[in-house]
Amino acid sequence: MMRHKSLPLTETTYLILLALIEPGHGYVIMQKVEDLSNHEVKIAAGTMYGALDNLLKQKWITTVPSEDKRRKVYQITEEGMEVLQAETKRMENILELAHSMMKGR
């Protein structure tokens, strides 16, 4: 499998895509990212909305209908899921390599 041209992803982008496997609005995304990262990654609102705009332009996420008209709800797209899976596989390969190189040390 050929490496996706957009890899590697930033940690923030990866976590946002992961968070959006289930639809969510901005505040929910910020909370999920913090939870997924064991409170190590905190995204400021400006940073997150910039990232969401970028992900929308790349068609990795989309907006979905919301019951609350004041909040935009986002969800990962099929293309976004492919990128997320490719990045996950890339990181798994790196971990496997690291584990095998450090065995016995």
Rank of each mutant, 00 (worst) to 15 (best):
E82K: 10
T10C: 09
L36C: 04
R90C: 01
I43Q: 07
E82L: 11
R71W: 03
T10Q: 11
L56M: 00
M81S: 06
E96I: 03
L20T: 09
E92L: 11
Q75T: 05
M91W: 01
Y74R: 04
K57D: 15
M81Q: 07
M102T: 08
T10N: 08
I94A: 02
I61G: 08
L55Q: 07
I61C: 04
T47N: 14
L7H: 06
M1C: 10
E92M: 09
I76G: 05
H4N: 09
T63Y: 00
Y74S: 04
P23Y: 03
Y49F: 12
I94G: 01
N93L: 03
G50A: 14
V64F: 00
E11C: 10
T10R: 12
K72D: 13
K103D: 06
Q85P: 13
M2N: 14
K59F: 04
R71L: 13
D68P: 02
G80K: 10
T63V: 02
H25Y: 15
E67R: 01
G50S: 15
R71D: 05
K69S: 11
S6F: 00
R71V: 11
V33G: 09
V83S: 08
L84Y: 00
G80C: 12
K59T: 10
A98N: 00
S100G: 08
L15R: 06
I43F: 04
S6D: 03
I76D: 01
Q31W: 01
K103T: 02
S37G: 04
G104C: 06
T77W: 15
Q75C: 08
R70Y: 11
A86T: 10
H39M: 05
M30S: 07
V64I: 05
M102C: 12
E78Y: 11
N54I: 00
Q58I: 00
E96R: 06
S37T: 06
Y49N: 10
G46C: 15
Y27H: 14
M81E: 09
H4V: 05
R71Y: 05
K57Y: 13
K103Q: 10
R90Y: 06
M102G: 05
E79G: 05
T88K: 08
K103S: 03
H39W: 07
A86C: 14
M2P: 13
D35N: 09
A86V: 09
M2R: 13
K5C: 12
S100V: 08
E11P: 06
D35P: 01
E92W: 10
L20K: 13
I76L: 06
T13D: 06
E79C: 09
P65I: 05
L17S: 10
L9Q: 11
N38Y: 12
T13C: 10
G24R: 04
E22A: 10
